[in-house]
Amino acid sequence: MTAVLSSSPDSIRLHDVTLARGGRVVLSQISLAIPQGSFVGVLGANGAGKTTLFHALLGLEPAVQGSMQINGQPVQRGHRSVGYMPQMRKLIGGQFTGWSMVASALHGQRWGLPWYGRAGRAAVDAALAAVDAQDLAQRPVAALSGGERQRLLLAQTLLDDPSVLLLDEPLASLDPARMRETVERIHTLARARNMTVLMSAHDINPLLGLMDHVLYLARGRALLGTVDEVITTKALTALYGAPVDVVRAGGRVFVVAEGGGSALQEHDCGGCGAHA
């Protein structure tokens, strides 16, 4: 299915794209166009293809078929205008200060010594300021909280002044209060710099009211549209090919699969059917 959202120039355009991981087709014959400056929440259960889609857009894994374009150019590895924030994982080099950690990503692909020069140091300072992390600059990273470390990661992705940001589960390890704060911060940054943002998430609620579009992945297919278009019982039932209910309660949205489980969360975590 093709979804053309508005008349502004397309930032990301996929045509008839099939992606596989480990020989298994994850997304099949996807076509979509995301306009420049759009803030897109990428939703789907584990294994629905969120990370695979990001890897493909980064040029790390070629598509089985179809064409992918970013800013009108074919997808390629190391594209300067594409920023990528991976999921947080085990910390390496926790004894470094926040400043050194962020600086390590400054033109990190260039050969030579990690010597940054005046312009480089100014760029690092500016990236830290953009995420309000000046106060983290001189503290060892190991002493920072998850949310603070994530601000440093975000600062690193801003160093190249990207026009497209791919954020892989930035809310995964945050407590609920920090989730909304993080989404708001990214949203403000994206608006100010006219960046296109694709942010994958397990829960739609922290993104509600801030995202322009939802990209919903399920059963190898993708559905792109506004929240009101995509997060409906009818649209999601068609996407899943099975009865799915969208329940709105207390200003929050819940996507519930037949049998009572949540359609987005892993099903082995009993109590978390409370989230969409």
Binding site: L58, L60, R77, G78, V82, Y84, M85, P86, I92, G93, F96, M101, S104, A105, H107, G108, Q109, R110, W111, G112, L113, P114, L153, Q156, T157, D160
Partner: peptide, 23 residues
Amino acid sequence: LGIMARPLLFATLQPEMAEAKGV
């Protein structure tokens, strides 16, 4: 070491990000 110190540092601290940037 002088030639590869910079990408090696990036790849050591942030392997996924470095890979995406073409390291």
